[in-house]
């Protein structure tokens, strides 16, 4: 929690093996995921700040809504 205040950032990561191009992630988090022409996700936001509640919420919805469980929210460790 303390990390978040200091501005830890997060990103969505797709497991390309599990992903089967259902496209739910794009519908649920259009601001983070776009689709290529075959319907597979392209993560557009490389990182978003953990205190951005709306983006975090979108990301969580996308993770929860993925029928293939191919998405995770990854914390980017400070570099």
């Amino acid at each position: 929690m303390a990390m978040r205040k200091r501005g830890a950032s997060f990103r969505l990561v797709v497991d390309p093996v599990r992903c089967d191009g259902y496209g739910h992630c794009h519908e649920l988090a259009p601001e983070l995921v776009t689709l290529d022409e075959w319907g597979y996700p392209i993560i557009t936001a490389n990182a978003f700040p953990g205190n951005d509640r709306e983006l975090m919420r979108s990301a969580q919805l996308a993770v929860r809504g993925c029928p293939r469980m191919a998405l995770v929210i990854e914390k980017i460790s400070a570099q």
Partner: peptide
């Protein structure tokens, strides 16, 4: 299944 159906109408693209 519309496997490589591509972008849906909900897509801004």
């Amino acid at each position: 299944p519309e496997r490589a159906g591509g972008r849906t109408a909900l897509s801004p693209l």
